[in-house]
């Protein structure tokens, strides 16, 4: 680790500790736990829920829903994006439809999805897939706007037909755009997931938040809220680490 990055890590750690201390003091003096539980109380609640296995179940359900929807949406978005990008007539034909659906937020689909798929897993998968697909599709298409004139000309000069030029030049050049769209899509997936779990689920971190309100357990709500943050950070960290390895040839910007 360089001196500069160690210093910035040290500063961040200091800021986090300062914030937690201030919160702890406020939680113990100014507020009652039902309004703002102190970090130590939330930690205790987390521990209790971990021991009982309930928290593990919630986290596992939320994570699995994200994983399935995210992977399906990424695949669908990338394939459609590449198809639209490669074939101008196809893009022209489908563009109005994409633009139409783009402005319908995933949550607007919750009620029809409940009717079609019920309260089971499929409904959440569909909603998260929908969210991710648009992000990946639009970002992949944006990648096609990148001018590759000389790289494409070189491909033609050096013996590549249209299909090989696409496979060996356009596709690799679009990889950072696809992966970038996936990362944005992952963030949006969490929003969709939590609302879907709050409104139509019997487990998961979203359900934990809403259920805690019904049970008047503010510390339970905070376990859910902070759990989402931790899960999100872990997912993003894992995604970046994995894509850095898999796409080490491409400069992803992280």
């Amino acid at each position: 680790m360089t001196t500069a990055s160690r210093q910035s890590l040290l500063r961040s750690a200091f800021a986090v500790i300062a914030l937690l201390t201030a919160w702890e003091i406020a939680g113990r003096t100014i507020f009652i736990p039902a309004v703002l539980p102190a970090p130590s109380v939330i930690l205790g609640e987390t521990w209790t829920r971990t021991l009982s296995g309930l928290l593990v179940l919630d986290v596992a359900m939320s994570a699995s829903r994200i994983l399935v929807g995210f992977l399906a949406g990424s695949l669908l978005g990338a394939v459609l994006g590449l198809l639209f990008g490669a074939l101008e007539p196809v893009r022209r034909a489908f563009e109005p439809i994409v633009q139409f659906f783009r402005f319908i937020p995933p949550i607007a689909w919750l009620t029809p999805v409940l009717i079609w798929f019920g309260i089971g897993e499929m409904g959440k998968w569909v909603l998260i897939t929908y969210t991710t697909t648009f992000m990946v599709l639009l970002n992949t298409l944006a990648g096609f706007a990148e001018p590759l004139r000389d790289r494409m000309r070189a491909a033609r000069v050096f013996g590549a037909g249209p299909w090989r030029a696409f496979w060996h030049v356009r596709l690799p050049a679009t990889v950072p755009w696809i992966v970038g769209g996936m990362r944005i899509g992952m963030g949006n997936s969490f929003q969709t997931l939590i609302v879907a779990e709050m409104l139509a689920s019997n487990e998961g971190l979203g359900h934990l938040i809403l259920n805690s309100r019904i049970q008047l357990s503010t510390e339970g709500m905070f376990v859910g809220i902070l759990g989402i943050a931790v899960l999100g950070i872990a997912a993003d960290f894992g995604f970046r680490a994995l894509t850095r390895r898999v796409f080490s040839r491409h400069r992803l910007g992280w």
């Binding site: 000389d150 790289r151 000309r153 070189a154 000069v157 030049v169 690799p172 040839r249 491409h250 400069r251």
Partner: peptide
Amino acid sequence: RVVIFQGDDSLYPW
């Protein structure tokens, strides 16, 4: 008829 292009935009960065 192979080409050496002006600038380096024709190399494949990956």
